[in-house]
Amino acid sequence: MSALPLVEARGLEKRFALATPWLDRILAHRPRRFVHAVAGVDLSIARGRTLALVGESGCGKSTVGRLLVGLLAPSAGLIRFDGRDFDARAGRRALAPLRRRMQMIFQDPYASLNPRWRVRDIIAEPLDAFALTRSRRERMERVAELLLQVGLTPADAEKYPHQFSGGQRQRISIARALASRPDFLVCDEPTSALDVSVQAQILNLMMDLQEKFRLTYLFISHNLAVVRLIADEVAVMYAGRILECAPSSLLFARPLHPYTRLLLDTVPDIDRRHRSRSPLAGEVPSPIDPPPGCAFHPRCPWAFARCRSERPELRAAEGAYVACHGLEEGRIPV
């Protein structure tokens, strides 16, 4: 984390208004309600590194990804990219030079590719959008090069998405993401829809491409074993906030936050079968009415009065960053 970060976010927030019908709201004398999908997130990713954002559905991890590439405008906070402010509300033209340098890979390779387009046009879309090639021939050559880089063949350019398997489609998505020679890729559950043997191929490809092009990844996932494999740093999100952020090897060897500890203890682990353990009780909190204080306190075996009333801030501890009163006060053993 020594070098200047390529991507940096400070105090990032995103609220979504709940679509309660206006008349219902008036009749029930209720104000507009909001989902605080992202409720104050700080993060930074150094060039060439991978930060994994892990958490359960609704914790806000995908929203953070969309904010960082400007698909959504933040409600508060700021994003800096390669030392420059990146404001998604600025005009299309003003943003283009930065936008070219960031791309996204989505989870579902069936939904993210237009079924009516040929592969060559899918992959060339960023080339056209940013006017990166000057002739048809150059465009074709670049598409062929990209197809080879992701393990497909130039002849695949003439085919349609339905002619490919799920893993091959994800390769097409990656080729499209690489077309504008980006520095930063947001990968939102890129292998969750794939079978294990195909997932391994795609993860290997992503690691190879990262090394070759010195790519920076934000890797969003709920799969801790995949995160263990690919990430340099891991940030654990819960109810719109980061609870713990640490280098991957440290986080998996010695998780600090009670949520991280229980999560790691609770996920099925092929190497530790039939072990005795206490599954994480309770439910994932609703992002509409998150619990006061620490959002994890209703499920936390170590929670006490302060956790119910006062929200813990992310603080440096033991080589990591963790938001927990119990740890800070030394009531929970490290």
Binding site: R228, D232, V267, D269, R272
Partner: peptide, 24 residues
């Protein structure tokens, strides 16, 4: 054997996975 080698493990270092080439 290939399937088991392709599963990412919670307690393993960052490394390339032994992927099975091709598809079923």
């Amino acid at each position: 054997r290939g399937l088991l080698a392709a599963v990412p493990r919670l307690h393993a270092e960052r490394r390339r996975l032994a992927a099975i080439e091709g598809a079923m």
